[in-house]
Structures are given as C-alpha cells and as structure tokens.
Design a protein around this nucleic acid. Sequence first.
DNA 1: CTGCTGCATATGTATATACATAATATTAGA
DNA 2: TCTAATATTATGTATATACATATGCAGCAG
Lengths: 233, 233
Amino acid sequence: MTDTPFNSWQSVQEEVLARIHSRQWKPGDLIPNEADLAQEFGCARATVNRALQNLADEGLLDRRRKAGTRVATHPVRKATMYIPVIRQEIADKGHEYGYELICSERVLPPTEVCNIMEFGRRARAQHIVCIHTADGRPYVIEDRWLNPKWVSVEEISIFNEISPNEWLVTHVPFTEGEIMFSAMSAGKTEAGLLSCKEGEALFVINRTTRNKQEAITSVRLIFAPGYRIETGI
Amino acid sequence: MTDTPFNSWQSVQEEVLARIHSRQWKPGDLIPNEADLAQEFGCARATVNRALQNLADEGLLDRRRKAGTRVATHPVRKATMYIPVIRQEIADKGHEYGYELICSERVLPPTEVCNIMEFGRRARAQHIVCIHTADGRPYVIEDRWLNPKWVSVEEISIFNEISPNEWLVTHVPFTEGEIMFSAMSAGKTEAGLLSCKEGEALFVINRTTRNKQEAITSVRLIFAPGYRIETGI
DNA sequence: CTGCTGCATATGTATATACATAATATTAGA
DNA sequence: TCTAATATTATGTATATACATATGCAGCAG
C-alpha cells in the first residue's frame, strides 16, 4: 500500500521502477493503464504519462497505443557514452595536454574514405594526421579527412595551433553522423607515433559527421595501448 | 518569418534545430525564453518546453532556471550503443546461433574480480566460460563470474542449455551497472577458443551489473577479430 | 473460414492555468 | 563598501480538459 502521495513524475517513476525490480511486474507483463495508475497514485494522468514515457525512452518499458504498456522482455542495455573533445578528456584526467601536427596534405583519398564520405573519385580532400599527448606521452592519433567544401584553404593553417578535433566542434555544425568502435593491431606507423610495440592491441574510434547528408569529415582515432572507455548503464 | 503554425513539439524542435544548424543561434548564444518562443511559434509554452527539454536531454542545449537556455558550446557527442543479447545480435545478422559451455566451476575469484564485485576474500563464486558461435564460427567468449547469492546451485545446470547472458536477462533483475570497452591482444587461450592467431587485436566489453549496489555478475566478452560496434550520433 | 469494417480503448499530445524552484539582480542595512 | 534580505524571472512541473491516433478485437459479409 502506498500512503505517500505520488505528486511528482519522478516519484511515480521510482515506484514503477521499484515494482519492476522487485519483479512484482515481470518482463513481458502488461502493467495497468495510465488512468488506473493515476488513480492509484493519486495524481493526474499526465504525470503518470511523463514517468512511463521516460522509462520507455530508457528502454525499460514497451508502450503501444491501445495495446498498453508492458515491461520490456529484453531490457535493451543502452549504454550512453559521452565523447568529449580530446583536450578536455586529457585535462579532466589531470594530465597536461599537448598537440602536434604530423602531416597536412591535399590529396586524393583512398577509395575506402571516398565510399564513406561519398566523394567523387577525382576530388582531392584535406588529409590531416596529428597526435594528442598527455603529460608528453602519446595519447591518441587523429587521422582525419576533411571535405574541402567545409574548410577553406586559409582555415587549414589553423591546424598548426589547434587540433581539427577541437576546431571543428565550434566552427562547423553537423546534423548527424556515425560512430564505430573497434580494435586493431599496431602497425609500424602506429607503433612509431604512439611509441608502443608493433602488434599491440589498440582501441579505435571511427567517426563520420555530416551536414544534411553531406560528409564534413571522417576521422579515425587510434588510442595508445591501455585506453578504455567506460560508462554506467 | 514563420507562416506555418508550429502546433506540435516536434515541429518546434525541428525549427530550433534548424536555427542551430544554420548558425542563426551559435554555440554559446542565449536563445529567447519559452514564453517568447511560444508567442512567436503560436503555440503553448508547454509545447516549446517539451521541445527544448528534449533537445537539452540530447545535449544540444544548456538550460538553467532564470539564466535561460543557450546553445551548448561543446555539443557533447553522446553516442548511445544498444547492447543486445548475443543470440539476438547473431540472429539479427542472419547467422545461425550456436552456444557451447566450456567450463563451470565454483572457485575463489581472482582479487581483481573480488574488487570489482566487492566480494569477501574467502567466498567462492561461480565461474563460467562459454562461447557463442555464428554459423559455426566462434563469435565471442563469455567469461563470467556470478554471485552465488543470486543464482542457486540447481539453476547453474541450466547453463548447459542456455547462455548465462541470455538467462540472466529474464531471470535476475538489476538496478545499475558499469560497462567498459577496450582492446586486448589474443593470448593462447583466446586464440584457441576463437580460432584466431595469437596476438590478434580483440574487442572487449566488460560489464558488471548490480542490484542495489550488490554485484550480481561481472562478465568479460572477448569478441573474435574484426568485431566492431557502431551507432549513429 | 477469410478478409474487411468499425468500434473501443490506451497512449500521444496540445492547451490554459497555477504554482514551485533556482538563480540572478536589486535593494536595504550595517 | 560589503553583506544579507528580497524581488524578479526563466525554467520545471502538476493539473484538468480535450482531442488525435494507432490498433486490437468483435462482428459482419463474402
């Protein structure tokens, strides 16, 4: 029985969560409809709606009109990773940030990059390789292709001072993109830049950002050995 | 000028997004308050509120009472990864799923596991190693420690038939947990189980789930070479 | 038995209103 | 001038009401 009044959507959400966790409502179960819950909790339907909708967003409930609300059978583990600007990430860990431009050239991208960025075969693009360091030690290689349409030739010289990673965030807007996590073995190049042994396992993030379909940039971040990315669920 | 009526929170959100993307409202800018926007869009403040709140949830806006709403300076790239049950993941890719139990033993966990799970030093725990296959080829090693408090001795025999990964989802509730992505080199054991070469780079997911602080299980998923996890931003 | 139609129903959303809360800005007091 | 009390303001939320929309299901026609 509930003698406390559920007068906030958060408290309703907590109660619903408690019932799920206590298995009073088991995965797959149909739970009472909003109107009934509102009456039971002594609040408005809108309040219950807010709570249930939020839980549905988080993947704990499945809701369908007319069919009602049920506890998700496979509570999809949704992990939300926050991907900060690299300088920030290093600073947050309490290390001193460093940046070095390794290479900047305007060349024909490899077909792989052309495919991802949906480039014409003949168009040159800006290729930039740089490295971010933490307390002087290599932290991550940033290997990036830029659509020249979005970054003028004059602007490119800025990358002697500031990393594309950081500059782009505040200067070029994007509407959508893809991100991919994977692992690779250090080749000769990576081993050299990251001062690690060849063959070591490296964590890799590939990211392409677009503005209304059109690719702005595609980057591959190759982290030094031992890097890991963590979050709560 | 807006001659179309913004009579749904989605349309308001789109308009706001458009203004951000067009840089009419630049990162750091203070945008008009809800009441003014409501008037401009010809809708109720609640509708504007829903739209802005949603954008704030996605990290595109920063909102503070009294201070107002501004465009996020560092639009934190938030990547949401959906981590399905392995069987489902393999089935979704159109492969035939297979499962094999490699080892099941009740032993003292290594200190590393004890620390993560906050176990006593003397308590034995259930250790399970199994492998998931796609079309007969090794897909991922599941190396798991179970808190015996949450899984009875009788229940353990079920793991001859069904993977802990799958069984736990529907049988043991959890309230929170941590997840970590990293990379490792294949040792002799991993190479054997995944039939790959020693030293190959493998993608690794570590996950610990808890119920009200208390650890239920801690698992390490070691994927076959080439595995990657992707999502949109 | 099959397929279509329409009704009942649960969720989804818009609105006006009212008050709560946080945090800035202002003012009064020492 | 500095500090503390107070007013102002933008967002946050609860409420009742109304209507929109999807869809399961029953009933009907073929």
